[in-house]
Design a protein around this nucleic acid. Structure first.
Lengths: 195, 195
DNA sequence: CGAATCGTTGAACTGTTTCAACGCTAGTGG
DNA sequence: CCACTAGCGTTGAAACAGTTCAACGATTCG
């Protein structure tokens, strides 16, 4: 656990290797998986302002190498090195992007299938790196490091619903799963069928 | 309509007066109201990168005064005037904040009542200006410039559900409505009851 | 005056959650 | 080495909640 929501934010964390789950929780015990950050991402940007609290929690997913930097140090370097400001702006922009995509997929889809499909597509595109926003008909394959429960808390669905939907997607030939690898056989059709 | 999603982003828009609805839509005709921006906000930040498309649409809510600035001009000023970089970073940060709050409220609440309550609370706090995150027991009153349909597309609910819930909140004494003014009589209780 | 927008309410339908039970695997400790 | 627990995925059945469809009144606007 890198940091926890509600606690004072005084360090910034630069991810060198590994992946980190960024989550928010509600008082009734529900969990929301906002994003999974990877190498190059900067977490705890809230610490840029003094006397702020973390609004999210960050938890390492795999084994990670992370540089944690006190606010004062970070800002000092930023002042002398304008390049860091640019990098920081890009990090913030990525963070916005993922929050926006989350909100979008949760709001625009009425059906659970739509939410899950869009979650998978967003994930695939982010993981793929070549984030082409246009839906291809070419298969995308990627490491699914998330449990079905994680997927559910990204899509706003219960664990059981995710299970049922994944078996459905499998039966329809839209996805394949082997071990911890997932393949979207036809992203375009997946998106079209369950918009 | 300031700009529309899918169109090339080449201008930035600084809101001087008035309010602007920022929306995203899906191919099935559904609409998602991401935020309502006000004076001081900068819209179309996507234009900072060249060759990008708008991912959202922006539509004036009331009569507005808005300065639209071509990307090249904006960046030129930013290079000579570092203060503008700071202002831009703050604008991006606000944009992140609203996307985050949207995602959070859509994901963490199972019940429609919870989603609507949290939407009203977020709105009140943003409108109030004094964005104290802690739930007060003191009434908050504000101008509700949104239709119930707008509220619904913020909360991911249908127009009818919003209507039913608002009359329920009214009956329970949690909110008062007169004309276009809305009062949350007991924000703390509203949040606690419908988390 | 008609058209359009907004809010309201009823009733039926449908889909998702919830509760429950089961198999499987991996990890733990006796 | 084996029971035991914990986590994960699966599936069934019932309950419930929100959407959808429909109709109505009120208001505004051209």
């Amino acid at each position: 656990m890198l940091f926890h929501e509600g606690l004072p934010a005084d360090h910034l964390h630069v991810i060198c290797t590994g992946r980190v789950k960024v989550t928010a929780s509600s008082s009734n015990g529900r969990l929301f998986l906002l994003r999974v950050a990877g190498p190059g991402d900067i977490l705890g940007l809230a610490a840029l302002d003094e006397h702020t609290l973390h609004r999210v929690s960050a938890e390492t997913l795999s084994s990670c190498t992370i540089k944690s930097i006190p606010r004062a140090d970070f800002i000092r370097v930023m002042k002398t090195n304008p390049e860091l400001s640019l990098i920081t702006a890009l990090a913030l922009s990525r963070e916005y992007q993922s929050a926006f995509l989350s909100a979008r997929r949760l709001a625009l889809h009425t059906s659970a299938a739509g939410k899950l499909a869009s979650t998978l597509l967003d994930w695939a595109r982010a993981d793929d790196g070549s984030d082409c926003p246009s839906p291809t008909n070419l298969p995308i394959s990627f490491l699914m490091q998330l449990s079905q429960e994680d997927l559910g808390s990204m899509a706003g669905l219960s664990r059981e619903t995710v299970s049922r939907l994944l078996t459905r997607f499998r039966r329809e030939g839209l996805v394949d799963q082997s071990d911890d690898r997932m393949t979207l056989n036809n992203p375009g059709r997946l998106e079209a069928r369950y918009r």
